[in-house]
Amino acid sequence: MSGAGARRLLPGLASVGRQRQREAELLTDALRARGVAEPLASLCAQVDIDTYSIAIRRWGADRSDDLHTHLDRAFNDLRLAANALKWAAHCHHFETEGKTDGSPGTGSTFSPQLDRAV
């Protein structure tokens, strides 16, 4: 894309960014009103807006499934990513404690496949 073409897109992109920020602020306010404390309210609102945006883009590129299906897939991807992050943090904990096999030790039931509470 030429420099001139990119400059023509910038106002539109800035407008989209401002709209997403307003949506995140409204959702954050709604979560706070329902008793969700900061920073969790802001985090949840931003993640929701971003995940919804991903689903919309996927739906625009692939209309063979309805938007609801794309939303389900996007939020499932988010759950899988969160579980992968939890597993990585869990393994890192054991590595820093001198344990390198990644096993959780006695009494733990952690499993990235079974832990679906995210």
Rank of each mutant, 00 (worst) to 15 (best):
A81V: 04
T96E: 09
H68V: 07
R63K: 09
L71D: 00
L31A: 03
R34P: 01
A14R: 12
Q21M: 06
P11T: 05
F110N: 00
I54T: 14
G17W: 10
G102C: 13
A117T: 14
A14N: 07
R63A: 04
R8N: 01
H70P: 03
E23Y: 14
Q19D: 11
A4W: 05
R20S: 02
L31S: 01
W87K: 09
D65K: 15
W87P: 00
T28K: 08
N83K: 03
R8D: 05
G35L: 10
G12R: 15
A55C: 05
S15Q: 13
T96F: 04
R8E: 09
I49M: 08
L40C: 02
F94D: 02
A6S: 11
G3N: 12
T51E: 05
L80M: 04
S64K: 15
C91D: 04
G17V: 08
R32P: 00
A88H: 11
V36K: 06
T100A: 12
N76I: 03
A84Y: 02
R57Q: 12
G12C: 09
L85S: 12
T51Y: 08
M1T: 12
R79Y: 03
R63G: 01
L71Y: 08
A37F: 06
L13R: 13
T100P: 13
E95I: 10
G5H: 09
S53A: 14
D62A: 04
C44I: 07
Q19K: 14
G12W: 15
F110Y: 04
G98E: 04
L71T: 02
A41R: 05
S42G: 15
G98P: 06
I54L: 12
